[in-house]
Write a protein that binds this DNA or RNA. Structure first.
Lengths: 220, 220
DNA sequence: ACCTGAACACCGTTCAAGT
DNA sequence: ACCTGAACACCGTTCAAGT
């Protein structure tokens, strides 16, 4: 990858290489100098194509969302559409959380609002419900990402805290923790926890919705 | 604050001063050198009381949670207790998100699990529901904090995106955004968005719970 | 025992200089 | 027009030296 000819550096190439770096080394292994070296250019060459690191991050985030929304289209059931969107956002390779405002995000926002309108909501209520559901999906994805970003060392320590500190924990100081102590360390079932919360959100929407969902599986 | 005598630096004092710095200058204005200078000590003096910055951050986070849970006690209605806990976590001065494992967190975890048990859940289901609700509260708080941390400049730009880009947005490219465009820029009603999502979560729990809540206000 | 201060290996960003 | 490379003002962290 070394020996860039002039003009061979583009925004697309830099985003693609960033994704590769993030995939390989995680968030820790990412910095502008590292990105520069990875493409065999000067550590500051990025500034010819992005105004700042934030600008690059924004482009990366939208590329991730773009990838996550491949082939996504509204289905006949508005609740099913929202369900699918939330899953896509969560499954998206761990991107940063902020408000991105890229074209891929615009399309996703439009789909979420479209589903909320299909449910029969309108005006300010539709806006609130769009943001409630959108925040839920984005915040959950971001929250899990933050936990993952703690690094394997900290995660191991965390699991340790459950298996040791919590298990051995004062029965009298934390009686409720004690009662379900053997079910707490199972860190593996993050999917089930997400599914449960998502189903609560969708049921809440469905219960309040003027139009029932078409498939009948998302009843309040 | 300058002129520290030896032995006058303690973990408590450093945490307290950190909170003051975070309050004044936000997350941007916080670093170990700055903390050192703020207390009139050497920039590296912190390392005599904390193993690392992460260690300090953990202590800060638990202090924030401690403050947020002042006077908190389980009420007669388990749903009301969960409701109050989620509000406290959200209102807590914006702390970092990760799994903290401090004593204040332990007490809060015990209360959440206590409420879930009071609802009549048990075993693995209780553990899953505790984590669903706990993640919801923590992720939401963290997500909002990330948005706030974007800084006022980025937030202004974001609001701008709504009032301009989205409003003027292609009616044909984003028809659903277009239909509720005038309701989208109202960034002020974050509270209502949170309330809505929280009520969905609580209703979902209540609907599945063997024991109804005592006050009747949280029916599924 | 606790604090200092120099030092190290990094950051993001700027800017004059090259080609 | 695009890239380089020195430079700046920062980080978190370590460690020998002071008292």
């Amino acid at each position: 990858m070394a020996g860039m000819r002039r003009g061979s550096l583009t925004r697309e190439l830099l985003v693609k290489e960033s994704l590769r770096l993030l995939d390989n080394d995680g968030l820790t292994g990412f910095s502008l100098p590292k990105l520069g070296r990875a493409i065999g250019a000067d550590p500051t060459a990025i500034y010819r194509h992005f105004a700042s690191k934030d600008d690059l991050v924004l482009a990366i985030a939208d590329a991730l969302l773009e990838e996550a929304s491949a082939g996504l289209a509204p289905g006949p059931c508005w609740a099913g559409t929202l369900d699918e969107i939330a899953r896509r956002i969560r499954r998206a390779p761990r991107g940063p959380v902020g408000g991105q405002r890229g074209p891929a995000e615009m399309r996703m926002v439009d789909m979420v609002i479209g589903a909320v309108l299909a449910a029969g909501f309108a005006g300010a209520e539709a806006a609130t419900l769009y943001r409630a559901f959108g925040n839920f999906a984005v915040f959950w994805s971001g929250g899990e990402a933050v936990f993952l970003a703690l690094g394997e060392k900290a995660q191991r320590a965390d699991l340790n805290a459950w298996t040791h500190a919590y298990l051995v924990a004062d029965r009298s100081a934390y009686p409720s923790i004690w009662r379900i102590r053997e079910h707490l360390p199972s860190v593996a079932d993050d999917d089930e926890i997400f599914e449960t919360s998502l189903s609560f959100m969708l049921a809440g929407l469905a219960k309040r919705a003027p139009n029932p969902c078409m498939c009948g599986a998302h009843a309040g």
